[in-house]
Simulated assay, not measured.
Amino acid sequence: MPRNPGIDALRGASILLVVLHHLALRIPLKQTALAGFVPARLLAALSWNGWSAVFVFFVISGFLIAGHAIARWGTLARPDLRAFYLLRATRILPLLLALLAVLSLLQLAGAQDYVIHGEGQSLGGALLAALGLHLNWYEGATGWLPGNWDVLWSLSIEEAFYLGFPLACLLLRRERWLFAAMIALALALPLFLARLEGSNEIWQEKAYLPGMSAIAAGIAAAIVAARARPNLAVASWLCAAGGIGLLVALLWGPWLWKLVGNGTMLVLTLSTACLLLGLHWRQQLAPRAGLRGLGWLRAQGRRSYEIYLTHMFVVYSLVALFKAGGGDMRGGWLWYVPAVLLCWGLGEVVARFFSDPVERRLRERWLSGGKMDGIERGR
């Protein structure tokens, strides 16, 4: 499966929303000069959709990882367990372990913004939670961790799902049964969210099952993408319907919530799945139909994992400079562009000089002399 520019752009938009959200928590756009002429709804959408963007990532992850598995082995019913787990490990672990090492050093050095000090929290507990795929549960039980640790909650959900997913494929044996299971799990998202009502805020946002529902929506879409043979009109319609649904969920989320409640997140995940289907089929049927003017967004999408794990270093540094310079909120919006560019630049540097070469060497050693090189990443 070649890289899909539309899916890369969608990933780029998602990581952009995550970065903007973490900036807006510290330099609120609604308090800047932009509030005088930019619609409040747009400012809110740019500021507070970080959590929703992670769910978009979940759907994309399910779609790409399942799609590549089908392309590699012909079916999801007979995955190669060793190859599947090694592919995930070589992509996720090198940068994750490097990040944990850096955060541990900053903790020991007592660096501001990086010290774990919540009641019931410790460096050892956070490390165990991050490596044991339950950092989301750890935060739900003990409280928020510093920002560079906090972003790892989504990895706990995603990788916990992928530990069991190939085993479920082998157990169910037939792809149609797996498809039915993924559809059921995807559609259960509102029920899972409803069951969490009354829990603390952290657990409502970071529980396992809602995130796994979003991943399942992507897997179901990947199965449809591999087995159906649509025409270009269907692909275009899916792009339009999915894009509109996603924009409605992101721009008018509060209104949609009043209308359908917990179904709002289902609108977001199913719209994302439809958009992925449309983008995938359009790439097959009209491969030269590019997205003009969005090269910068696609570039960020290609480095979304690196940006996601490292962007808080940039956010904390720029916010500290902003405060040191007087913290004038009216001009706070001026810090957003350099923040986005620096997050993108840091992700590019980390990918080019660390995660890409390390991943390539590990795959050359463990996966048949590098035959897996060139596979598009799931995140």
Rank of each mutant, 00 (worst) to 15 (best):
I244V: 14
G245L: 11
L247F: 14
A249L: 08
A249W: 11
L250E: 09
L251C: 12
W255S: 14
L256F: 07
W257F: 15
W257G: 08
W257A: 11
K258M: 13
L259P: 02
L259G: 06
G261C: 02
G261K: 11
N262G: 02
N262M: 12
G263Q: 09
G263I: 07
T264Q: 10
M265F: 15
M265S: 15
L266F: 13
L266M: 10
T269H: 10
T269V: 15
L270T: 03
L270M: 07
S271G: 15
A273Y: 15
L275V: 05
L277S: 08
L277A: 10
G278I: 03
L279W: 12
H280R: 12
Q283K: 12
Q283T: 08
Q284V: 05
L285A: 03
L285S: 07
L285G: 06
A286T: 06
A286N: 12
A289T: 04
G293N: 08
L294V: 03
L294D: 01
G295Y: 11
G295I: 06
W296R: 10
L297R: 00
R298K: 14
R298V: 12
Q300S: 13
G301Y: 09
G301R: 05
I307T: 07
I307N: 02
L309E: 00
T310C: 13
T310A: 13
H311A: 04
H311D: 04
F313G: 00
F313D: 01
V314C: 06
V314G: 01
V315Q: 03
V315N: 00
L318R: 00
L321P: 08
F322P: 10
K323M: 13
A324C: 02
M329N: 03
M329V: 11
R330K: 06
W333M: 05
W333C: 02
W333R: 01
W333P: 08
L334I: 08
W335E: 00
Y336S: 00
P338D: 01
V340W: 11
V340T: 01
L341T: 00
L342N: 02
L342E: 02
L346T: 05
L346V: 10
